[in-house]
Amino acid sequence: MTHDPFTVLGLEPRFDVDLAAAEVRHRELSRALHPDRYQGKPAAERRMALERAIEVNAAWRALRDPVTRAEALLAAGGVELDERAEPKASPALLMEMMELQEELAEVRGKRDAVGLRRLGDTLRTRERELCARLAPAFAAARGDAARLRALLPAVGELRYLRRFFEAYAAAEEELAA
């Protein structure tokens, strides 16, 4: 990615970005860059508009997901996202995520829609709380690489939660069928 998603959408870089405002911005820019508006324009201009439209879409996608949003802030602060160098999760967190995944597999196997929803609600609350803690931490780091690096374990936890939600979405789809 050449530009960070906040810059692309012209928004202030913060973890608790106003997603509604970001969506409006995405819509406006997408409309302005639509190929229909560039009909009859020189090829180079058309191509640039298309590239920019792709960038705008990618930026909106990145901001919607708390993991990629966090990663964008880390990258902007000069924190290299090297998967091998990231801090390892605590054994307690790994154990917990393993148990949650197993619980999910169990309710999925039993086709227990109520249990599934309860599990999803619990984890969504947890993700919300984690994000609520991350927002002031990102703000306090003020783009300082060392302080941002200290947030890597929490960002890692967000990724474990995201993996859970992927499996959750698949289970939800299966039970709805």
């Binding site: 998967e83 999760a89 054994p91 790994l94 890597l152 890692g156 990724r159």
Partner: peptide, 13 residues
């Protein structure tokens, strides 16, 4: 052995 990949959220036992 219980390990995880913080970069992608995979967990492996």
């Amino acid at each position: 052995g219980l390990v995880g990949a913080p970069a992608c959220g995979d967990v492996m036992r």
